[in-house]
Design a protein around this nucleic acid. Structure first.
Lengths: 106, 106
DNA sequence: TGGATATATGAGTAATTGCTAATATAGATC
DNA sequence: GATCTATATTAGCAATTACTCATATATCCA
């Protein structure tokens, strides 16, 4: 494996790490229909504002979200809609997992 | 957000966590062209056999890989080719990141 | 059956991640 | 300028992740 490939995998892992948390996935799905402000996201997800702020900052840093300010509010928007398609694939994997486990138990 | 949605995000996060590591991504790309045995994977990635074994086990547990034994060797195969397409998308995000950072520095 | 080989696992340790509570910062309004 | 509101950040702590080393387990062969 070349050093270039290794480096590319490291960068890709950064992005995937930034996706790999339930709260961040919930935020992304919420943003599927367009940009939202932090307060709406807090309400939708149902956890503390400070926790949400951390997660938003992390995803912005990873290039997954972008933001814009409007008065006191900050609106976040999804920059990688392809993630939503991928989640469909992930869901299939999960369902296969459950099917296989069910079959194994029978 | 409903409890069902929350649960689904948790499960999706499990799969993404299982992907989100440079060595695991390298393994997945190596498996793009078909199943490989552990010793080939060890050689390709260039880290310890025990480390590789841990990563393989984790991905198998998450439903990403499947395996079959042949004598002393164990062959692993990718169960979610859609991940490869998604990596293309992740790469675009990474490149956008680099472009934006370059623009910001100029 | 013993030795060799391939692979998986346990234990210990360090690094990373994620949460909460408190608080700082920024913008708006009076 | 003070107050309020929205959001971001710091610090502390707990949980999780990842690695190495040593070793266990399984398979093959003489």
């Amino acid at each position: 494996m070349t050093e270039k490939e290794r480096r590319r995998c490291e960068l890709q892992a950064e992005v995937l790490k930034a996706l790999a948390h339930p709260i961040r996935l919930a935020i992304i799905q919420f943003l599927e229909n367009g940009e939202k402000c932090v307060c709406d996201i807090v309400e939708y997800v149902g956890t503390s504002q400070s926790n949400i702020s951390k997660h938003l900052s992390l995803m912005k840093g990873a290039g997954i979200l972008s933001d814009r300010k409007e008065g006191l509010s900050v609106y976040y928007e999804l920059k990688m809609p392809c993630a939503l398609k991928f989640f469909g694939c992930v869901r299939d994997i999960m369902e296969n997992q459950l099917s296989e486990r069910s079959a194994a138990l029978q």
